[in-house]
Computed example of a mutant assay.
Amino acid sequence: MNKKILYLMHVDWGWIKQRPHFIAEKLDKKYDVKIFYMVSRNRKVMTDNKSSVDTFPIITLPFKKIKLFYLLNLIIQRCLFYLIINLQRPEIIWITHPLMIDYIPRKYLSKYKIVYDCMDDILGFENSQEMKKSLERNERLLFKKAEIVFVSSEHLCGEIIKRGCDHSKTVIVRNGYNGELITTYRDEKRNNKESFKIAYIGTISSWIDFDLILYSLNQLDNIEYHFYGPIDSKVPNHEKILFHGSIKHSELYETIKDCDCLIMPFKINNLILSVDPVKLNEYINFNKNIITVFYPEIDRFRHFVHFYNDKEEYIEIVRKLQKDNTISYSNEDRENFLLENNWDKRMKVIFNTLDNIQTEKE
């Protein structure tokens, strides 16, 4: 009989596909997984992530910043999950964010095996002091109650150990590439192109270095930027910075195949230092030149990307690619890297770990 997993997901199933989506779909191939996801009220940025997995929305009350509504919502969700857990009787409760632990009745945190998938440094996000205190409190509880803490990067693993997570509970599972290898063409001749198109794919938030983008537009001729993904922060208004919204994951390559290069222009802070970006795996599959800010966690991508440390190095790289856009890596290297870093490889570690939990329990 397949092991039952109750999977609590803090992002909407219709959000641009991320680590929680990929892991949930892979878990479902081996186990009996029921996925409960937080519903976003901003439906305009959602995509249609069709899947065969069993997904159920968690619909919360509005005005949760008002204490009365917050407490009422908490009571409702705990009652609902009390019923859900008693009906499903899962062996494992999988949690993707510290705030989700509030929905689990406290007595069940000891009765069932808890798995925490720590994908980001949650204390690195911009939040109110009150929210940070709640996150810290819930994170400590998760560290204490979790049987296993999967962590997406080495830097993040070090950070949570500093904050009290038992090292013996941690298992590093980096982000991977999902999907088939794309058959691409290499259009490296630029003579007939009017502009050099630079694209970014992913959530557009406060970590995007728009100062760098605007500076480059002042310094370079014939470039334009195309951003694909949901927007959740203020963005500049510029005729050469175009925002296209969220794109279905299956349609990403067709959307960006005519772009000249792909970028990851992050601002370096505590949050970013812990990020193992899914997008770099996707970018490599698209067979484009890639420009990204350097930080130690992504040094392993060195063979496939152009690193910059400041705005002048960024300008220099773009100028070079405008003159010669020959891809910096071979197709063979691309295929070998993706095969060694896909989600099937990552899931072997997760499956082995979960099977050991089962053995210990039995």
Rank of each mutant, 00 (worst) to 15 (best):
F36A: 08
F196Q: 06
H226E: 11
I92S: 06
K65W: 05
D28H: 12
P230D: 10
E297R: 08
P98Y: 06
L338C: 02
L339S: 13
L214N: 10
W343K: 00
D211L: 02
R43I: 14
E224D: 12
I290C: 04
N218F: 02
V39M: 13
K193F: 12
L142I: 02
P277G: 04
Q18E: 13
L220H: 05
T184P: 03
V235A: 00
D310C: 14
N269A: 03
P230K: 06
F307N: 12
L212K: 03
F210N: 03
S40E: 14
Y215K: 09
T203G: 12
Q358N: 15
L71W: 02
P105V: 13
I327A: 13
F301C: 03
F301A: 03
M131P: 00
K267D: 03
H167Q: 11
N270W: 01
W207M: 09
I291D: 03
D54K: 11
K111R: 13
I298K: 04
L99E: 11
K169C: 09
G158V: 11
G14C: 13
E340T: 01
R137Y: 04
N127T: 07
I84K: 10
R300I: 12
V293I: 12
S246V: 01
L74E: 05
I122G: 00
V39F: 09
K64M: 07
D102G: 04
Y200L: 07
N2V: 05
I101A: 11
K169A: 08
C118H: 10
Y185T: 15
V33H: 10
K288F: 04
P265S: 04
M131G: 00
Q358E: 15
S40L: 12
D187G: 14
D221P: 03
Y228S: 03
S40M: 10
D12S: 08
N309R: 15
I16C: 14
Y82M: 12
F69M: 10
I298E: 08
Y7E: 03
N49A: 03
K144D: 10
C79I: 09
C261G: 02
Y82I: 06
N309L: 14
D344P: 00
F351G: 05
V275N: 10
R106E: 15
E224P: 04
L273F: 05
L321R: 12
K64W: 02
F150W: 05
E126V: 04
K67E: 06
I327T: 15
I201F: 09
S110L: 14
N309D: 15
F69N: 01
N178M: 00
D355H: 12
N191E: 14
R78D: 08
L212G: 06
Y177C: 00
D121G: 06
Y7W: 07
I357T: 12
R163Q: 14
Y7P: 01
V235F: 01
M9R: 07
N352D: 15
D232Q: 07
G164N: 11
E147C: 05
F307V: 11
I247D: 01
E154H: 05
Q88T: 12
R302L: 11
N191W: 09
D260N: 13
K29H: 02
H303E: 14
